[in-house]
Design a protein around this nucleic acid. Structure first.
Lengths: 224, 224
DNA sequence: TCTATATTTGACAGTTTGTCAAATTCTCTC
DNA sequence: GAGAGAATTTGACAAACTGTCAAATATAGA
């Protein structure tokens, strides 16, 4: 931390430091133009410090991101890629890198949001043409012998969408994660419950409790 | 089969009948040019009656196809689509229609072989670009809540590769099917064994027997 | 037809699944 | 920081599922 005269100076120092990444952001945005936006978040003020190729209609100075406290707990400096939905419904593939000061404290985030909708559309068109069956041939190849990886991928996806960090997730999230897995049908995999309970560090009984709740809300939804 | 007057007439009659489909074969081949070949098989002589846009380097008069006896048992007149490998390794998407005489007896087959390699290559390139993770994100989306459909797709795939028809498969095939499912990891789906035994019309015990064998050959392979 | 092989049947022990009540821990509020 | 209320763990349990087995039966090939 360079100068300590007062808080305001520290903040503007952080912003200045962050803006050194602006050309990088610009370069990435141009490379992928017009499909990607690059945003630099200032963690000291919780605002947006820079935007290249604005897709999400946010502006410099806007407050950004909800929960950033968790980032300190991160083991890596790269988060994602994870899926994000733009205000207009487009699917974005997002990846975030953590920008730290010399002391190693998180200063900001550089977030690349890549609009993959057109790519997915093209891929799907080709898929359809190449597909056997009515389009259902791929699962066979993609259903891994190693179902744990499949589950892990689903969990990683979930974590990516919500914020982050592997094992350090609040117990409120457990219920949501389990509900998601249930809705995607993962519990017809053998031994998933004990595996999950070990993974999340909670008891089997709790997993079953969340499961029961998830199934009941599902029923409620079905009836309404 | 260089035969007597009687038979020869019958045979040439069949061929003539089949050649009426030649323009259709030609038209399909031209539509998909240069990616598809269309072959008309003569079932009465087990030879090739016509080829449009030859990809597989076979020629008219060549003997064709190994097992055609099964076709009589078919419930539909369209077989596939199923995957086929060309002599040069290219993957072909094949679909076959049965050509019958007015009495309803199978006379020939019209087989369309579509080279999907370039399409798959393009799709995969796009997939990679759109992919989350290192390419393993899709299973999550493709792992259906309805695992039965996933299994059915795998089985249908298997059936397509070997020849055909749903429930009418020899018991030798059971072992192969189960081995395939085991190797792809499908038996970590709950209740798969009873489901399969019902589906194949064999007993649970037999399924387990095949499973045991499949697992032992796997071990043998692993050790060698 | 007879023999050798494979399948079915029914029974069984071992696991896994899902639920429960009591004991414990956690989380608020005061 | 003490205590009420909620959530979680623990350990136990019945029910369901898994995998194996031996005897009875069916099937295929000589």
């Amino acid at each position: 931390m360079p100068n300590k005269t007062n808080a305001r100076q520290e903040i503007s120092g952080a912003r200045e430091e962050l803006l050194r990444f602006a050309p990088v952001a610009e370069a990435v945005a141009i490379l992928l133009k017009p499909h990607a936006e690059v945003v630099i978040h200032d963690l000291t003020t919780q605002t947006i410090a820079y935007i290249a190729n604005n897709l999400s209609r946010r502006e410099v100075g806007n407050s950004s991101l909800a929960d950033l406290k968790d980032i300190g707990a991160l083991d890596t400096d790269v988060i994602g890629p994870y899926r994000k939905t733009n205000f207009d419904g487009r699917q974005l593939k997002s990846i975030t890198s953590v920008l730290r000061d010399p002391a190693g404290d998180p200063l900001g985030l550089l977030c690349i949001n890549f609009d993959i909708a057109p790519i997915e559309a093209a891929r799907d068109a080709l898929s359809l043409l190449a597909a056997f069956q009515d389009g259902g041939a791929q699962p066979a190849a993609l259903f891994r012998a190693d179902w744990q990886e499949t589950v892990n991928a689903a969990i990683a996806d979930f974590l990516g969408e919500r914020g982050l960090a592997a094992s350090a997730l609040a117990k409120d999230d457990h219920a949501a994660l389990i509900e998601m897995l249930e809705q995607e049908g993962y519990f017809s995999i053998r031994n998933l419950v004990p595996y999950l309970s070990r993974l999340l560090g909670i008891s089997r009984a709790t997993v079953y409790k969340h499961l029961r709740e998830a199934r009941q809300t599902k029923i409620r939804k079905t009836m309404s």
